[in-house]
Amino acid sequence: MQPIKSIKDIPELDLFTGGSSVCAGCGPSMGLKLALKVLGPKTVIINSAGCMTLLPLFPNTPLKVSWIHNAIENAATTAAGARHGLDALGFKDMNVVVYAGDGATYDIGFASLSSTAIKNERVIYICYNNQSYGNTGFQCTTATPYGSETKTTPRGKENPIGNTNIHKDMLKLMGVHRVYCATASLAYPVDFLNKLNKAKERNGFSYIELLGTCATGWNFDPRYTIKISRLAVRCGMWPLYEIDDRKLSLNKEFKQLKPVDEYLQLQGRYKQLPPDGVTKLQSLVNEHWAQLNEFNAKRYV
């Protein structure tokens, strides 16, 4: 497959039509629309319960590809079953693609994901990471960043920080499964789609994590979805990198990261994060960025 060099090369093919019931500025739905451009019509999406579950609402669907929604914690193993079934029936050319949120991926579905990855099932797993249980109204997951307020980590007298946990390093965890894994951002569609193309050509499992920029939960003006997706990368909050055969490659390198404050200021979820919280968050970002740079082009896991 030819690499996509610029947005002009992105296929015009559109398998995600209008009429979905997602929020204005919804990042995850934009991600799926983009992804389907390279995945193509011979695709079955396996969805876990979450925001995207509301894309098809009987008897309508905005999708021109097949879709299976099972439960929340089992998208990966449902996909494994679909893969085995399709192979047995002779449809080896179908792409089996999971589109699951971070709650379903980092938390409740982690066992299912881990077993599917370690067996290297021919499945592309895309986690749309909106850093929360979004569909239930923005509660904390183990993907929620330090300092983010959520409905289950509200700021208050006894805890001015909001979420005090440091989020799970999912790429590293998936990396030790020795599968292809990568991060992606809506602001860098060429990078995202090339990673998907890479995953498509693998004869095994791939894990791609897309920042699921969420205007409703993160509380920002919906017109800023792409701006925030770009700032997340520029500030080091969402570095773009991949782990292939346990080797790390940074896909967007910057001599100097922008301060995280620039990213935080645009979002209601970080409003009123006290200065020491911002400092701690900045130090976490710096530490991760330094680690990525240290291991760039080297064995990482």
Binding site: V44, I46, I68, N70, A71, E73, N74, T77, T78, A79, A80, G81, A82, R83, H84, G85, L86, D87, A88, L89, F91, A111, S112, S114, S115, K119
Partner: peptide, 23 residues
């Protein structure tokens, strides 16, 4: 195809995935 899963929950989930495509 004989497959080992990591839990019974995943056994039935994979069974659903395979049966849904027609196996």
């Amino acid at each position: 195809d004989f497959e080992r899963m990591e839990s019974e929950h995943s056994v039935m989930s994979a069974a659903i995935g395979a049966a849904a495509v027609g196996a």
